[in-house]
Design a binder for these strands. Structure first.
Length: 568
RNA sequence: GGCUCCGUAGCUCAAUUGGCAGAGCAGCUGACUCUUAAUCAGCGGGUUGUAGGUUCGAUUCCUACCGGAGUCACCA
């Protein structure tokens, strides 16, 4: 915890110069601003500010007020942005969890034995003359601090606490832990320092419990999603729950990484800038390399590079990386998103189903300590084993139509009777996909493997060992949404070339979902021989949504893509 | 991209048929050495998203634009 040992000795009292006899009005008098042409970084005698920043246009009254406070603190010899760190010995949650009245309560008129030094942001402040109470929040939570003028020093108290300490400021506090008359475990401050001033007011929430009705009213709660996404720093500062989601996300990734590492799979990095894009059906972002004067795509998938590595002799490789797809935005789609892809040699998709079950169960336990978690209005169980259901069986169960072996025209007719629109460009596989999306997928709340997809939807998957026209592929569906996609990888180079060529025909025919140009280098790799391989892709963002019960992908991405703030 | 809804003080929201733009919290001044909605006495704070239009008069009605949310399309 303590990263700054040795700095404590010289901190005490160092912030305070004498305030002198300067009249109060002079606190706000600044030197005339130098003109821009006279400002030089080499001239250390110039004030850091080139204009009285309280006069900057566009400032609100509260921002002006805080800038005046900042200058007043400077004048009082209190650096609003000191360079030194603060020696933190305890976090708020540890103090609250450790404090014990029998052991730690201070004797009458004496210091308590439980000494702590902590730091955080001022989230509430109740100043009542020569004492003040504030709540300080660190990464773990809030703790109340009791500040007395006679305990922290009269000069500091008068210069900072009484007038110039604001909600949102960072402070360091050192003292002993006690319980107030009102019963709240608090820190009795004996040393207090401003660590950083907040010049903009954070809309800090204030919870009010109505004594009469018992209702809790919340003031100043930010509800504007735009504010929260654009100013994520403020959203995070205000909402521990939001921070928790991203901690959970980090834990999720760490758990997956450990799970895969323990099995001996090698984490690798493959190009994000690619001369050809492939491995999925999506429109790419394009960019350009100046020195090579070469057009490049941002990857839409890692797949074709990872399989090259299986050709090269790796028996298990994975990558957790950003993919980029130039498609629409929605609650489930961000243009850049994080994908896990895993390829394991000498395995097939049946084996991969078991790995997925075990991995997700492990992740769920790591995050929640249980396999039963809430998801929207449902409770979902990730306990193994999960249901397994061939695509055609699922379709038959939900639509009442046996569709196996039907021709494209027969499928189109069934779709019409079920009210699903079909147009001329849709092949048999696409129609099945539409029916699945309309009738099956939304109904699958508990984790379910849907297996064996039409070959035309899966140009990189191996043909099914016993079902003509299908491939050995599965998706796991949870809460009505796909969370992974996997297949026995196609390793027959001639079949792969034929599939690519079919995609080319579809593309020429106007299907812009079809994959891009044929990757001859990938085919060359397959020709050297790739062992039978099971492959897996998991959208980390969507998995995080499900495992943290978030309704929008923007709530699991720290900085989701938004239009620019200033119109344009 | 289509459709629906939304945009007023730092935050959350009001504003009658189209008639002086308000409240709570936050903020400021003063008092107060165990408060927690601290309390008490005072006080300020607005280009109503932007640009036009209708009107004697627009937060309100109309048009366009900007931004966001939801949804559909798209995203194998």
């Amino acid at each position: 915890m303590s990263r700054n040992k040795g700095q404590m000795a010289n901190r005490t009292g160092r912030r305070l110069n004498t305030m002198g006899q300067r009249p109060a009005a002079a606190l706000f008098t600044h030197n005339p601003p130098p003109t821009a042409s006279r400002v030089s970084f080499l001239d250390s005698t110039l004030p850091a500010l080139t204009m009285p920043d309280t006069l900057r246009p566009g400032l609100t009254d509260q921002e002006i007020q805080r800038r005046e406070s900042r200058h007043a603190l400077d004048e009082a010899g209190i650096n609003p942005y000191p360079s030194e760190g603060w020696d933190v010995t305890h976090r708020a949650d540890a103090v609250l969890a450790t404090y014990d009245d029998a052991q730690h309560a201070p004797a009458e008129g004496e210091d308590g034995p439980f000494r702590v030094s902590l730091a955080g942001r001022v989230m509430s402040l109740r100043s009542k003359g020569k004492t003040a109470f504030m709540h300080v929040e660190d990464a773990t939570g809030r703790i109340q601090v009791y500040v007395r003028r006679d305990a922290v020093g009269e000069e500091l108290y008068d210069a900072l606490v009484r007038k110039r300490l604001d909600l949102g400021d960072f402070v360091g506090v050192e003292g002993y832990v006690f319980r107030t008359n009102a019963g709240e475990v608090s820190v009795y401050a004996q040393r207090l320092a401003l660590l950083a001033k907040a010049l903009k007011p954070l809309p800090i929430e204030k919870e009010v419990v109505d004594e009469a009705t018992g209702e809790t009213r919340v003031y100043n709660e930010i509800t504007d999603k735009e504010f929260r996404y654009r100013q994520r720093y403020a959203d995070l500062a205000l909402h521990p729950d939001v921070r928790r989601v991203f901690v959970q996300r980090a834990r999720l990734v760490t758990t997956i990484r450990r799970f895969l590492d323990e099995r001996g799979y090698v984490e690798v990095e493959t190009p994000a800038l690619q001369p050809l894009y492939g491995g999925a059906a999506a429109r790419p972002f394009t960019t350009h390399h100046n020195a090579l004067d070469m057009g490049l795509f941002l990857r839409i998938a890692d797949e074709l590079y990872l399989k090259r590595l299986i050709v090269g002799g790796f028996e298990g490789v994975y990558e957790i990386a950003k993919d980029f797809r130039n498609e629409g935005l929605s609650r489930f789609h961000n243009p850049e998103f994080t994908m896990l892809e895993l390829y394991v040699a000498y395995k097939d998709y049946v084996w991969m189903m078991e790995l997925v079950e075990e991995m997700i169960e492990t992740v769920c336990l790591a995050l929640h300590g249980t396999t039963e978690i809430p998801l929207g209005e449902h409770t979902v169980s990730f306990a193994r084993p999960w249901a397994r259901l061939p695509l055609f069986d699922a379709l038959e169960a939900k639509t009442g139509h046996a569709l196996r072996g039907k021709t494209r025209e027969e499928l189109a007719a069934v779709a019409q009777t079920l009210g699903v629109a079909v147009d001329a460009t849709m092949g048999a596989g696409k129609i099945l996909d539409e029916l699945f999306g309309a009738f099956v997928e939304p109904t699958l709340i508990q984790p379910t493997f849907i297996t064996d997809y039409p070959v035309e939807l899966s140009p990189l998957a191996k043909r099914h060992r016993s079902e003509p026209g299908l491939v050995e592929r599965f998706e796991a569906i949870v809460g009505g949404k796909e969370i992974c996609n996997s297949f026995s990888e196609l390793n027959d180079p001639d079949d792969q070339r034929a599939r690519f060529e079919e995609q080319q025909r579809l593309k020429a025919a106007g299907d812009d979902e079809a994959t891009g140009d044929i990757d001859e280098d990938f085919l060359r790799a397959l020709e050297y021989g790739m062992p039978p391989t099971a492959g897996l892709g998991i959208g980390i963002d969507r998995l995080t949504m499900i495992l943290t019960n978030q309704a929008s992908i923007r709530d699991v991405i720290l900085f989701p893509l938004l239009r620019p703030e200033e119109g344009g």
